[in-house]
């Protein structure tokens, strides 16, 4: 405008960064969307096998992980609010809480998968090869979708650790927090996917 506002400001556009993050999130949604599509087609073809398969998963562990992820989604949203209000300490605490929740999620997943592996149920195992087709499809989808989701959790953790370090070194601050915002968006995506994975894999009757 007419303001002679000559700062030595770096060139950046936060709205564009966020739009870029959203475009990436769209590709992620469609990636999982494709898997949900495969799931729904096979579920329609083998309803009984899918039902039996889901009975072998622990609803309790699934529910705990749902609560853990929902809670972590709130804490990372709070970290952003804290950063916007220039409360660096609270922002860092909230990011750390989010990371702890992510670890809790993965530990739960470890025990859940561990029990399946213990029973000889894992991709490529002899038992898997003996299963009925519908059963095999259910467990293949279960392992693939939860593994891909867990991989996203790990990527999200790496991203949040980078964000945490940058908040610590003041490279992210109350006037420049778009990386925290984008990291939070990614974390919410992970939560969003789990919101659909949980009922579809654990709760089908």
């Amino acid at each position: 405008m007419s303001d002679t506002n000559i700062h030595t400001e770096e060139h950046r556009n936060d709205d564009a960064s966020k739009l870029g993050m959203w475009l990436f999130i769209f590709t992620e949604l469609l990636l999982f969307g494709g898997l949900f599509l495969v799931y729904s087609i096979y579920r329609a073809q083998y309803p009984h096998n899918f039902h039996e398969g889901s009975l072998e998963l622990s609803v309790t562990i699934g529910a705990i992980n749902t609560i853990v992820l929902l809670f972590s989604s709130m804490t990372i949203a709070m970290a952003l609010t804290a950063m916007q209000r220039n409360n660096k300490k609270l922002a860092m605490t909230m990011i750390v809480v989010t990371l702890v929740m992510a670890v809790v999620f993965l530990i739960n997943k470890y025990f859940e998968w561990g029990a399946k592996f213990h029973h000889g149920l894992y991709p490529g195992s002899d038992l898997m090869a003996l299963l009925e087709r519908g059963h095999l499809l259910y467990f293949s989808l279960y392992f693939f979708m939860t593994a891909l989701h867990a991989f996203h959790i790990i990527v999200g953790m790496v991203l949040l650790i980078v964000v945490l370090l940058r908040v610590k070194s003041n490279r992210i601050h109350a006037h420049k927090y778009v990386l925290l915002e984008n990291g939070a968006l990614y974390w919410h995506l992970v939560d969003l996917i789990w919101i659909f994975l949980f009922p579809l894999l654990y709760l089908i009757s």
Binding site: A77, M78, T81, Q84, H175
Partner: peptide, 19 residues
């Protein structure tokens, strides 16, 4: 700064959404 005109969501709102 136009870059920072975004909405700030209150902690209370976030807590309620979680509940």
């Amino acid at each position: 700064m136009a870059n920072n005109s975004s909405h700030i969501t209150d902690y209370k709102v976030l807590t309620r959404v979680l509940l």
